[in-house]
Nucleic acid binder design. Structure first.
Length: 197
DNA sequence: CATGCGATCCGCT
DNA sequence: GCGGATCGCATGC
């Protein structure tokens, strides 16, 4: 697998409604470059192909932004292309890409990827788990890629960003599986979850 | 200040 | 299929 020819997605890609951006993120590449010797071992580039996402929109009762800006969700109100990472259930991290215009409070939750590069490093972080369970959930994905609160607010469109999303020319599925979002208690009727077939 | 619970995962049944 | 783990934040008294 190579990421030669892979182009970093620009801010204009993300600066659209989350419900538009989300299905287009399917088959894009999530890339993370942990710093060597930072304690976030093991180092080395990590790449996975995005297979599942959910959209969280303005005026969306299921969204963390619904009740306005808070210290925790501040990055969600930033410019498109910023990472919104939060800590959940006292043990898991979840990663989102901010979409729309600054102040909108909309984002796409990255729920699952297929590991492509750095699989050994992911196995190490996901110790004891079978390969199929390396990154097939939002918390697992963050653990496999070493994404944590210190990534909250990272601008993935900035040159040299340690986390970014790339396009290697693979188009999104023409007929993704569409369904309702999971793990929420309101806004459950909105069909804003997309998966590769 | 106390309480409740969450955009989850895992191990056991 | 179910419940426990575990903690930051929002809410309410």
């Amino acid at each position: 697998v190579t990421i030669r020819g892979t182009r970093r997605l620009r801010r204009s890609f993300f600066a659209r409604p989350a419900t538009t951006v989300a299905p287009e993120l399917l088959n894009k590449l999530l890339v993370a470059e942990p710093l060597a010797g930072s304690g976030d071992a093991p180092p080395g580039r990590l790449v996975g192909r995005i297979t599942e996402v959910e959209a969280y929109m303005p005026d969306d009762p299921a969204s963390h932004s619904f009740r306005g800006e808070r210290p925790r969700n501040l990055s969600m109100f930033g410019p498109a292309g910023v990472l919104y990472v939060y800590f959940s259930y006292g043990m898991h991290h979840c990663a989102n890409v901010v979409t729309g215009a600054p102040g909108d409070g909309q984002a796409v939750l990255l729920r699952a990827v297929t590991p492509l590069v750095g699989i050994e490093a992911m196995r190490a972080r996901r110790k004891g788990r079978p390969d199929r369970a390396l990154a097939d959930g939002p918390g697992k994905l963050c653990q496999a890629f070493g994404l944590a609160l210190h990534h909250d607010g990272v601008d993935m469109c900035a040159p040299g960003a340690p986390v970014w999303i790339g396009d290697d020319g693979t188009p999104p599925p023409s007929e993704p599986r569409v369904g309702t979002r999971v793990g929420i208690s309101s806004g459950t009727d909105r069909p804003w979850r997309w998966r590769t077939p």
